[in-house]
Amino acid sequence: MGWDFERLDEVFAMLGQTGRHLLLHGLLGLLLSLFLAACDSGDVAVEEVTIYTSVDQHFSEPLFRRFEQVSGVRVRPVYDIEAAKTTGLVNRLIGESKRPLADVLWNGEVSQMRRLAEHGVLAIYRPKRLPEGVALGPKGRWLEFGGRVRVFIINRQRLGSRPPPTSIVDLLDPRWQGGDIAIAYPLFGTTATHAVALAEVWGVAPTLDFFSQLERRGIRFVDGNSVVRDLVVSARAVFGLTDTDDACGAVARGEPVFATFPDQGAEGMGALVIPNSVGLIEGAPHEEAAKRFIDFVIGEEATALLAQSGWLYVSGRQVVADPDCRLPARLKRMSLPSGLDAEALDRLRRDLRDVIVR
Rank of each mutant, 00 (worst) to 15 (best):
P164R: 03
A252E: 15
L63D: 10
L214W: 01
L122T: 05
A321M: 03
I298K: 04
R330V: 11
P262D: 00
R74C: 12
V75A: 11
Q308M: 09
A235Y: 03
F210R: 02
D322F: 03
A37K: 08
H194L: 11
R353F: 14
D230R: 07
R76P: 03
L89V: 11
V319A: 08
R229I: 00
G283M: 06
A302H: 08
S33H: 10
P275Y: 07
R150W: 14
R65E: 13
L30Y: 14
R65W: 09
A304R: 14
D246E: 15
L172T: 02
L272I: 00
V320L: 08
R129G: 02
I153D: 04
E82L: 09
E287G: 01
L159A: 03
V134C: 11
W311Y: 15
R350W: 12
G160Q: 01
R292P: 02
R92Q: 14
P328K: 07
R76L: 12
A304C: 05
L116F: 02
G140A: 10
G310C: 01
P323L: 04
L93D: 05
E132V: 11
E96R: 02
P275H: 05
E82G: 09
L306F: 11
E301C: 03
E287D: 12
H21D: 13
V196D: 10
A344E: 15
D4S: 07
T260W: 12
D170Q: 02
E82I: 10
P186G: 05
D103H: 03
R350A: 14
R66G: 11
R126P: 05
R126Y: 15
F261R: 04
L336A: 14
G189D: 06
E109I: 07
G179V: 02
L8E: 10
E82N: 08
R20C: 06
V70I: 14
P262W: 00
I298H: 07
T87Y: 13
L305Y: 10
A182Q: 05
A344G: 14
S41R: 10
G72F: 08
N225V: 00
R253L: 13
P186D: 10
W176R: 00
V355H: 12
A252Y: 07
E282L: 14
R141M: 11
F239W: 13
W3S: 06
L306H: 08
F145S: 11
I94W: 09
S97M: 06
R66Q: 15
V90N: 04
P164K: 02
I294K: 05
I183E: 06
T166Q: 12
N276H: 15
T18K: 09
R150E: 15
A321H: 05
R141S: 14
W176T: 00
D324P: 04
L8H: 10
R148A: 09
L143M: 13
F12S: 04
Q177W: 03
I298M: 08
L306S: 12
Y79L: 00
L24A: 14
R115V: 06
I219R: 02
D243F: 00
V204C: 09
L122H: 06
W106G: 04
R115K: 12
L312V: 09
W106Y: 15
A266E: 11
D170Y: 04
P127K: 03
V75W: 09
A342R: 07
V257T: 10
F258L: 01
V55T: 09
V46M: 07
G178C: 01
R220E: 04
D295E: 11
V238M: 15
G2H: 07
D173T: 00
V70M: 09
F152L: 09
V320Q: 09
V149I: 13
A271Q: 00
D346F: 04
L198N: 13
V151R: 01
